[in-house]
Design a protein around this nucleic acid. Structure first.
Lengths: 108, 108
DNA sequence: AATTAATATTGCAATATTACGATAATGATT
DNA sequence: AATCATTATCGTAATATTGCAATATTAATT
């Protein structure tokens, strides 16, 4: 064993878990924060900003892209990355829902 | 290699990544949702609700607890679990911040 | 067409995660 | 004190993730 039993859970549960998983690494949070700070599309640069080798950063970018957290537009021979709001909104709404349901009943 | 280079990132980045990582598994999302649905502290039951063996569920509960996402109160010979709002609020605020920064400048 | 620059892919070693059977620990019940 | 119920821990196999050197790909530049 060792593989996650995704088929035992709902699509919604797998979807939220996938987004969270993609954000579950400090390098990927750092990438998101760099895109926030820049406040515009960033072509290149990201590799120089992180304390990791180019192939490693490329891999992290791929994972963020697969999870729908960032978008990449090809711009000449470089690629222009930015945050995909929709996905961030999806989890933000999800956690808001969690908070609302919890605040109704306190016990611990 | 293979170990995450946590010391190359800020405490804040590691903290957010850790919370996200803990939520990055459908079983742990299912646990959170069960605690939401119950709307009260749940003693036991969680194991019966999930399609996983008892030791596996126990391990997932431990990870959620370590990340500060749930609290566990000992109640006789069983344990009473509920969601820890504070941590959910932490990431919710964080993602709100991300959304705010993105909506300012659209390009992709 | 050769060179340069930017990014992606491959392949692999080190480490982490997932899952569970077996067993231990703890508290309630008899 | 023996038994039962509940939860945790240990040990281990299967799989996934992380990181990077080497290499490939792609597009611009010379």
């Amino acid at each position: 064993m060792g593989a996650t039993k995704t088929d035992h859970f709902t699509d919604q549960q797998n979807k939220i878990a996938n987004i969270a998983k993609a954000l579950g690494h400090p390098a990927r949070i750092a990438i998101i924060e760099y895109l926030m700070k820049a406040n515009e599309c960033i072509c290149g640069d990201i590799v120089n900003e992180l304390p990791l080798a180019q192939p490693t950063v490329s891999q992290h970018l791929k994972e963020l892209k697969n999870a729908g957290l960032i978008k990449g537009n090809i711009e000449g021979n470089s690629i222009c990355y930015c945050i995909d709001e929709k996905t961030i909104e999806t989890i933000n709404k999800y956690f808001s829902k969690v908070i609302n349901s919890v605040s109704k009943a306190k016990c611990c």
